[in-house]
């Protein structure tokens, strides 16, 4: 079972492209092989889904003490739950992603209910220079992301879920619709409304 760490999300860009561009029938075939216990298929399937799950959990749960440890732990739990449930999974015509995000949604809800500000292990201090963004850029990015998260939390549940799946997890309108039980057209209309609300809230806050 691949481990979910912050570093493993890394090439999120590739992960997103891989997942969204996959031919649905290929994914169905892969899922079918994984359900039968094919190790290679299981690894490949999780490899495609994991980056999307990590992003989903990070977007929903945010940081604790500046770190994504809790969100990444929940993402790991989702992957373990998916793996455990695989032998019992039956293809009922809906994409496998809707099964995965159903589990993810419950795990996130559990985490939110039992959210306890626990101690967060810190990384060892690096010996060499850090190539990442500097403190100022990091803080600006952090503040903007927290602002986005705060405004998203004020959207109706279904609109928030839709925007996170569509934009953050990287699902297409069709895939998002499959997860949420909506047509692609309804997804586009709902995301238009969600964006309008976000825009209005952001503009109102900038005036205030």
């Amino acid at each position: 079972m691949p481990n979910v760490t912050e570093g493993s999300v890394a090439d999120a860009k590739n992960g997103v492209r891989l997942a969204t561009r996959s031919d649905e029938s290929d994914l169905r075939e892969l899922t079918s092989l994984a359900v039968q216990g094919d190790r290679g298929a299981i690894e490949s399937l999780l490899g495609q889904l994991r980056p999307m799950v990590v992003r989903y959990c990070r977007a929903r749960l945010g940081r604790v003490s500046g770190q994504y440890h809790i969100a990444d732990d929940v993402a790991q739990e989702v992957c373990i739950a998916v793996l455990s449930a695989l032998p019992r999974y039956r293809d009922m015509g809906r994409p496998f992603a809707s099964f995965v995000f159903g589990i993810a949604s419950h795990k996130v809800a559990d985490a939110l209910r039992s959210s306890v500000r626990c101690a967060v292990p810190t990384q060892d201090l690096p010996d060499g220079p850090d190539d990442g963004p500097g403190p100022e850029e990091t803080v600006v990015r952090y503040i903007e992301a927290e602002h986005a998260r705060r405004l998203l939390s004020r959207l109706p549940d279904n609109q928030r879920e839709l925007i996170i799946l569509r934009v953050v997890s990287g699902l297409s309108a069709e895939e998002t619709g499959n997860v949420l039980g909506m047509s692609p057209g309804a997804v586009r209309v709902a995301q238009h409304r969600a964006l309008a609300r976000l825009r209005a809230m952001a503009e109102l806050e900038s005036i205030a």
Binding site: E6, R55, A59, G132, E144, A145, A148, L152
Partner: peptide, 16 residues
């Protein structure tokens, strides 16, 4: 705002 959230969520690691 969504672009900022994506940027943050995709971040490889946070050292600060």
């Amino acid at each position: 705002l969504l672009a900022a959230l994506i940027d943050d969520v995709d971040q490889r690691r946070s050292s600060v």
